[in-house]
């Protein structure tokens, strides 16, 4: 008997310890390493940074990278630009995603499944190829310009590629499903009697929407916004392919700092600051999910 209890215990331990150790090694330790390297100085060597402990064994850390990030306007402006662009893209996603999620949640049950499938389907198709699809559309000789020229609406092609507009289009296009799905989940389980009760008490359809539907969809709005904002902040592919060379976003700066300038310590410092900026939205998201899960039970 005792043997079998031990065996069951062993199984539990294995089930916990295996993923636990994996995550410690491949998730937590890498972050400690980033933090460590962001406190080192760059050198031309392999690997290109000074060790944390020098030959004498003394602790050698430097805040130079962070000091540099703070003093060089380029970084401050880029962080700010990233927040603004990700923020605007999030609001655009919300403006398009909310009516869509609303429409799907109020559609007949048979069509609802199909409409949701059509929201999720692009998500399974390569992200990169979806961004690429817009290159052919927004080119100076792309489909949009050609059509407008042919219709006679414009005389010369509009510059769309390599502008912030193109970045917004790319961001909204890529992250729309992340907005629609949590919104749909909230709207779908909302008690429609509440909306009817508001109308019964004298609210018009529009009024009832703002009094009841909108405040009650808050968990979905918060989740959707965070799920769009967080990855948009660190986005690399969209600004690289669609944005102009001057439209720098922090994900791209990090990438270039690492691969082009090979300044690993500075790239690490950029990552640490980005992570600190994202702590707030990540905490908001996790609190929101916890509260939502509590409300659902």
């Amino acid at each position: 008997m005792a043997g079998s209890v031990n065996r069951d215990n062993l199984w539990q331990r294995v089930a916990i310890a295996t993923p636990y150790l994996w995550l410690l090694l491949f998730f937590l330790i890498p972050f400690i390493i980033i933090l460590k390297i962001s406190l080192a100085d760059p050198v031309i060597a392999q690997p290109p940074f000074t060790p944390t402990f020098d030959e004498q064994g003394a602790l050698s850390i430097s805040l130079d990278n962070f000091r540099f990030l703070l003093t060089d306007d380029l970084y401050a402006i880029t962080y700010l630009r990233s927040v603004v662009i990700a923020g605007i893209a999030t609001l655009l996603c919300l403006a398009l995603g909310f009516p869509m999620a609303y429409g799907i949640s109020r559609a007949r049950e048979q069509t609802r499944g199909l409409l949701l499938l059509l929201i999720v389907l692009p998500f399974w198709i390569s992200f990169l190829l979806r961004v690429y699809a817009w290159m052919g559309l927004m080119n100076n000789h792309g489909v949009i310009n050609n059509t407008l020229l042919w219709l006679g609406v414009i005389d010369a092609p509009i510059q769309m590629m390599y502008t912030d507009i193109a970045v917004f289009v790319g961001l909204v296009y890529s992250y729309l499903p992340f907005m629609v799905l949590p919104l749909y989940a909230t709207l779908e389980r909302m008690d429609l009697d509440l909306v009817e009760a508001a109308q019964d008490l004298g609210a018009t359809r529009t009024r009832a929407f703002w009094d009841v539907t909108w405040p009650l969809s808050r968990p979905g709005v918060v989740a959707g916004c965070m799920l769009v904002f967080i990855p948009a902040m660190g986005e690399y592919v969209i600004p690289y392919l669609l944005g102009g060379p001057e439209s720098l976003l922090i994900g791209r700066v990090l990438f270039d700092e690492f691969f082009v300038n090979r300044d690993w310590p500075l790239a690490s410092a950029v990552a640490v600051v980005l992570l600190l900026l994202l702590v707030v939205p990540i905490v908001i998201l996790q609190r929101n999910q916890a509260r939502d899960a509590e409300a659902a039970t």
Partner: peptide
């Protein structure tokens, strides 16, 4: 519904969960 001299008590009660008792009644 909002122009009828009729009010309804719903089976689910449909009490607005984001408003307190007073606000619900005053709506």
């Amino acid at each position: 519904p909002y122009e009828r001299p009729v009010n309804m008590m719903f089976q689910s009660y449909a009490v607005f969960p984001h408003m307190n008792v007073e606000k619900n009644i005053a709506y």
